[in-house]
Amino acid sequence: MIKFQNVSKIYPPDIKAVDNVSFEVGSKEFVSIIGRSGAGKTTLLKLLLAEEKPNQGRIFLNDQDICRFKSTKVSELRRKIGAVFQDYKLIPSKTTYENIAYIMEVIGVSDFEITRDVAGVLEIVGLTERANSFPAELSGGERQRVAIARALIHRPEVILADEPLGNLDPYHALDITRLLLKINTLGTTVILVTHNKNIINSLGKRVITLQDGKVIRDEQNGRFIL
């Protein structure tokens, strides 16, 4: 489903964020990406979202080379991916409810479905009471949960979660992990980037380890080893 083929990304002057990386992620797979800070994990996700273009190599989603996509195709691509960003990237002028509903509005889902699904997902992430709060009025953990809710709401083909557990207490972290696993069993591909050792070790899923922009380990039933 997702294929990285000899992908390199160099930031000026000559910082190699991703260095000749190749791997494939199958449909309905759950993959964790680990690595130290600056190992290239976030850049990898940015490349998959077409937020950055690689200097070398090709990236495929459903056999389509996303590096050649024009603006409209990029929008279509991003609608197939639910992304949880490290810095949340919530729209500051919109409330929790509006932030989550926005992607459904973009897709053109009916008002009835938006009302029903947003209420449902707010309940799952425990933010029903905060529906009318703006991002600035939320705590770090709450913002993270809004970002997760926004990534899930439109049932994307792939979920890219960049440190979605970073600001959560153990109780919520476990809850969100369970949610991601459940979504995965329902047929969504999940790519999880995290530093949470316990969660990775308890998952028993595939783990890709990055170091200095290179893949140094790629194991099924992998463990958190840095």
Binding site: L49, E51, S71, T72, S75, E76, L77, R78, R79, I81, A83, F85, K89, L90, I91, P92, S93, Y102, I103, V106, I107, R150
Partner: peptide
């Protein structure tokens, strides 16, 4: 609103939307 516009692009909104 530039940050907001970028976020809207990243979640898949079309330019016209």
């Amino acid at each position: 609103s530039r940050e907001e516009i970028k976020i809207q692009r990243l979640v898949g909104a079309t330019n016209w939307f």
